[in-house]
Design a protein around this nucleic acid. Structure first.
Length: 584
RNA sequence: GCGCCCUUAGCUCAACCGGAUAGAGCACUCGCCUUCUAAGCGAGCGGUUGCAGGUUCGAGUCCUGCAGGGCGCGCCA
């Protein structure tokens, strides 16, 4: 099943071909001028340029071929050679019925399903989730759901940051903090008690700060890192403890956001593969020694600048950021053999991924082009720098969600819905509203650009917001409940009124929205579609009273349209990671 | 210093291979609840797309230069 844009594109393409021109010129887009047309084709302009002919003349020939197309109510030439098309009510009716009958609500599917791995770019052990982690989680989650929905086999991996220098830092800091913990570390004796998240939370920033100033401290941590990685038993025990404590807390945080990983792998899981990887690099003559470290040079002909090499083994003998990432590519090739790996990580790490990708291609762990870094911008404060609270600290994700929840509770109370709902439903609704607000505020932006973190915006429930989308869905649910209570059922759709036409055209546009979101790996196109669908429905809702429809046939049609809208809306919202409540 | 990204309405952001009159939300002004949820709908206001050139029938989009901002650049991740 195809959307109207594609179907019309084929017809227009055939008309071009009949004139001896490339059918590629037949591309049809939604009209920029809804006052003039539903769809347009600009192909005559490009074709004229290529053939050295007059665009209006070509457009006229094309129109001649399409004039008798029964789907078109009108087709005419405008401006320098635009072809404007308006559809008949019958054509829209047919398309709307197709969507209504489609279990996928009009969504497309990929032709060649691939195995895709989504790497969420890892939250780190010992670092509590703050607003900076928001983007990778919700963008990654949305892409995972989108790819899966369109037919790819997708695995999401948290890629936990549980290896490397930060672990050495924590071991040193914990040893200094408490003699009992030091005993575990050095002698592998005794128990680890009272070492919870709060302690890690405090120790890590302290140790990281000190390592920057204090060279001896830094060297101790680097040695500890190397010893951990070479398997010192006490260090391993402490490390497992850190990981367990952090993972439990992170799972809770992610669950609150509706983010689920298929794999909770960490950087440490790639560690056993490092010897093999080093062998592979050596066998290909890629590994060279430089300044005491083992590196891979990854520069290419035509580079505009010299990229630093990938550091494989530090001069201390320990694995680095790039080491585990490269070994992880090998791990994934062996376990899942993905056609595509998407790294949803901060844009600032673009160079790092370029290094890892090039090294992966060189050593043969991945097919050229099969690794993609989907960088996203940072969330900045009003000063344009990464967001900090007024106290200068980071805002914890948990606190952000709670703030939004509190706002949602207030609004529910104001609307007098508190009494009607059970306490559980009330909290459930407040939670869904809060999560929708936060996710939509982020996902409506193109992922690549940085944006200003604005608490008011994140908790605003009016206008182009998540709660607006939920509100429209809930209105439909309420309408459908009422209709059912009165014994009215949905029936065949007939598109007639302007508001119905617009809604049908918007429903049809889901195909293009998903195709584009998929191609660009950019959920904002889904967010945009969800918003347009809400708007179209809201107009329809105001213009076409459903229950008070003059005839049973019309009421059945309107009900079917409402039902279909709800189904498509929930489909798209689900891909954004947003769930709809029954009432609000 | 080298490289990458960004600059669009007062604010926050869109804009489908280069196409018609650059779109939304917020804010502001006005109108609409005895009929399906007003977290809504309608109308208005708001633009030299940072600046200067170039390519093109046509540029927010492509090219060059400049200004301003962000980020990255070997043993952190």
């Amino acid at each position: 099943m195809s959307d109207l844009k594609r179907v019309l594109g084929e017809a227009v393409g055939a008309a071009f071909a009949a004139e001896g021109l490339s059918a590629d010129h037949g591309r049809v887009t939604v009209s920029d001028r809804p006052d003039l047309a539903d769809f347009q084709s600009n192909g005559a302009l490009a074709a004229a340029k290529a053939a050295g002919r007059n665009p209006r003349e070509i457009a006229a020939k094309v129109v001649e071929h399409l004039k008798s197309d029964p789907r078109l109510a009108s087709i005419e030439i405008a401006g320098p050679g635009f072809v404007n098309m308006r559809l008949t009510g019958e054509a829209l009716t047919e398309r709307a019925r197709q969507i209504a009958a489609d279990p996928r609500a009009g969504a497309p599917a990929v032709e060649q399903p691939r195995r895709v791995l989504v790497d969420y770019g890892g939250p780190n052990v010992a670092k509590p989730m703050h607003v900076g982690h928001l983007r990778s989680s919700i963008i990654g989650e949305s892409l995972k759901r989108l790819f899966r929905f369109l037919g790819d086999e997708v695995v999401g991996d948290a890629h936990f940051g549980d290896w490397g220098f930060q672990m050495g830092l924590l071991i040193v800091a914990a040893s200094d903090e408490n003699p009992a913990w030091a005993r575990v570390a050095e002698q592998d004796e005794g128990e680890i008690e009272d070492l919870g998240l709060d302690v890690l939370d405090r120790l890590y920033p302290m140790a990281a700060g000190r390592a920057k100033e204090d060279k001896d401290y830094r060297d101790r941590a680097r040695r500890a890192t190397a010893e951990l990685q070479s398997g010192k038993p006490g260090y391993l025990r402490l490390w497992r403890h850190f990981v367990e404590v952090s993972r439990t807390a992170l799972k809770r945080e992610f669950a609150a956001l509706g983010v689920e990983f298929d794999l909770w792998k960490g950087e440490s899981d790639a560690d056993p593969l490092i010897p093999q990887m080093v062998e592979d690099l050596k066998a290909k003559g890629l590994l060279v020694e430089d300044q005491g470290a083992q590196i891979v040079r990854i520069n290419r002909e035509g580079d505009k600048r010299e990229l630093p090499p990938l550091l494989v083994i530090s001069s201390e003998g320990s694995a680095m950021y790039g080491t585990t990432d490269l070994a992880t590519v090998l791990d994934r090739r062996r376990s899942f053999d993905p056609h595509l790996i998407l790294y949803v990580v901060d844009q600032r790490q673009a160079d790092h991924f370029e290094q890892v990708f090039r090294a992966s291609y060189l050593v043969g762990y991945a097919e050229e082009g099969s690794l993609e870094h989907l960088g996203f911008g940072t969330m900045n404060g009003p000063d344009g720098k990464p967001f900090k609270t007024r106290e200068g600290g980071v805002l914890k994700l948990h606190d952000l969600i709670e703030m939004a929840r509190e706002k949602a509770r207030q609004r529910l109370h104001e609307a007098g819905l508190g009494a009607e709902l059970s306490p559980e439903d009330f909290e459930g609704t407040a939670d869904k509203v809060a999560v929708a607000a936060i996710k939509f505020a982020d996902l409506q932006n193109f992922r690549g650009t940085s944006y200003i973190f604005d608490l008011d915006r994140f908790t605003s429930f009016e206008g182009k917001t998540g709660p607006y989308l939920l509100y429209q869905s809930v209105r439909i649910k309420s309408l459908l409940r009422k209709a059912e209570g009165e014994g009215h059922a949905a029936g065949p759709i007939v598109i007639d009124e302007a508001a119905e036409r617009e809604l049908a055209l918007t429903l049809d546009a889901i195909d293009a929205a998903m195709t584009e979101a998929y191609a660009k790996r950019a959920p904002n196109f889904l967010a945009e579609h969800a918003y347009r669908l809400s708007q179209s429905f809201s107009k329809f809702y105001a213009a076409c009273p459903v229950l008070a429809a003059p005839t049973p046939q019309l009421r059945a049609s309107l009900l079917a349209l409402a039902q279909t809208t709800l189904r498509q809306m929930e489909t798209v919202l689900a891909l954004l990671g947003i769930a709809t409540p029954e009432r609000m």
